[in-house]
Amino acid sequence: MKVLVDVDRCEGFASCVLSAPDVFDLDERSGVAVLLVEEPPDAVLADVQDAVRSCPVRAISLA
């Protein structure tokens, strides 16, 4: 599983960081989500899926 973040759509709500803090963070300058782990382990799959569902602007996807 590969996580993708569309930085042009991200508005910095940080719901992804709350759902999967080991995978996402917010850039301090731009305020948009950044990936800490592009291909996270299966152990955090449920958290990443929650982050995808909880993003209000649908800026996160799985490939």
Rank of each mutant, 00 (worst) to 15 (best):
P21S: 09
V32L: 10
E38W: 00
G31Q: 10
A63S: 15
P41V: 06
S61K: 12
V48S: 02
L62W: 06
P40S: 05
D6E: 11
A59F: 02
V23Y: 04
F24K: 03
S30A: 13
S61A: 14
A63G: 15
S61Y: 09
V44T: 07
V3M: 06
L26W: 08
V37P: 03
S19G: 10
V3F: 01
L35G: 05
F24L: 07
V52E: 05
V52T: 00
C55W: 04
L36Q: 07
V37C: 09
V48N: 00
L35A: 03
L4V: 15
Q49I: 01
F13P: 02
D42Q: 13
P40K: 03
V34L: 11
S15Y: 13
Q49M: 11
E28W: 11
P21G: 08
G12K: 02
R29Y: 15
V17A: 06
D27S: 10
F13G: 01
A51H: 00
C16L: 07
V5Q: 05
D22T: 11
F13T: 06
D27Y: 08
S19W: 01
R29V: 15
S15C: 13
L62V: 10
A46Y: 07
D42C: 08
D50T: 10
C16M: 01
L18F: 11
R53H: 03
R53I: 02
L18P: 04
G12S: 08
V32N: 09
D6M: 07
